[in-house]
């Protein structure tokens, strides 16, 4: 501690110095303990408990006896639960790949267009990010009304421009419901990958680009060989966050198609199934914290393992280029 020896005019007695030292220790403790308590109590303890709860039988809110892997077996292999789980999981996978193409793909194209700094770029940037700050509840309800089969703006617009034949009950039709949800999600969130990619593009040094332009006339080659590798860190962030988001998907389907993933489970996803199992709904009044916890643990492990592995893989790719 240099400060204790230099700040006094006279040399301090040792006992004073030791007192100051413990004062510093106390000060650091005072700074660290409250935030650590909050983290331990409301993050670490609940996560560990979720793990433990999955191994118990639950009667409502009361914990019963230890049942080993029984809850996991039920959720994964015992009908009727197993087919619901796999059906929901399949939809999560579909949502993830669809959004990778639509949301992240369009995000990259928009970022590339914004990067050229054409007239109005500032305005376009504000517009594309606006839905990102709005609540999913607002977005869900607005689009639910727009998708109304008769009075909704989407079908009315199709009629108005002479494409009335395409009008369909978007959210009521098993073939279109999940795609309609994916469209709304992409509409609401495309601004995020756009601005993350844009931030990556703006950090590319102009000398590198100028040098590359000497080599090739083709913009596509330039993007593939120079631009894309240089914004690899932005891609890592967009990909991994979308992965986590797709397998946690809950709010938008809850608002737009309800807890049961109507019609007939065609939009059911793991988030909805988890909530139904843990907290019940009108059609299935029972709540089962044991099975709910098992689902949560499986989702958590799946997300953690794949997100970590994919992050490591993508990070390696960043270094190689």
């Amino acid at each position: 501690m240099p400060s204790t020896t230099t700040n006094g005019i006279e040399p301090k007695p040792i006992s004073r110095a030791r007192l100051r030292l413990s004062g510093r220790g106390m000060w650091i403790t005072f700074l660290l303990v409250p935030p650590m308590v909050v983290m331990a109590l409301f993050v670490i303890y609940p996560i560990l408990s979720a793990l433990a709860y999955a191994f118990y039988d639950w009667q409502g809110l009361a914990r019963g006896e230890f049942v080993g892997f029984a809850n996991f077996k039920k959720v994964l292999f015992q009908e009727p639960f197993a087919s619901t789980t796999w059906n929901a999981f399949k939809h999560n996978i579909y949502v993830f790949f669809a959004l990778m193409i639509i949301q992240n793909g369009l995000g990259f194209i928009l970022a590339y267009a914004l990067w050229r700094d054409l007239p109005g770029a500032r305005f376009h940037r504000i517009a594309v990010f606006l839905p990102v700050v709005l609540s999913t509840v607002i977005i869900g309800y607005v689009w639910k009304l727009f998708f109304h089969p008769i009075f909704g703006a989407v079908n009315q617009l199709l009629e108005a421009i002479g494409l009335g034949a395409l009008a369909t009950p978007w959210l009521g039709d098993a073939d279109t419901a999940l795609n309609a949800l994916i469209f709304v999600n992409a509409w609401a969130w495309v601004g995020f990958p756009t601005l993350v990619f844009l931030a990556g593009l703006q950090r590319i040094p102009s000398e590198i680009l100028d040098a590359a332009r000497m080599e090739t006339d083709s913009e596509l080659t330039l993007i593939r060989k120079v631009v894309w590798p240089l914004i690899a860190p932005s891609a890592t962030v967009c990909f991994v966050l979308l992965f986590i988001g797709s397998f946690n998907w809950f709010e938008l389907p809850y608002i737009m198609v309800g807890l049961d993933g109507s019609p007939y489970g065609n939009t059911d996803v793991l988030g909805l199934y988890f909530y139904r199992t843990a907290f019940g709904n009108q059609s299935a009044g029972i709540q089962d914290f044991g099975m709910g916890s098992a689902l949560a643990v499986l989702m958590f492990l799946f997300i953690a393992v794949f997100a970590t592995a994919w992050t490591i893989y993508l990070r390696k790719r960043e270094i190689e280029v």
């Binding site: 993050v43 303890y45 609940p46 996560i47 408990s49 979720a50 709860y53 986590i244 946690n248 809950f250 988030g271 988890f274 843990a278 914290f289 709910g292 916890s293 949560a296 643990v297 989702m299 958590f300 997300i303």
Partner: peptide, 9 residues
């Protein structure tokens, strides 16, 4: 950590 998944505890 997606804290949503710790909703039951």
């Amino acid at each position: 950590v997606p804290l949503k998944l710790a909703i039951i505890p």
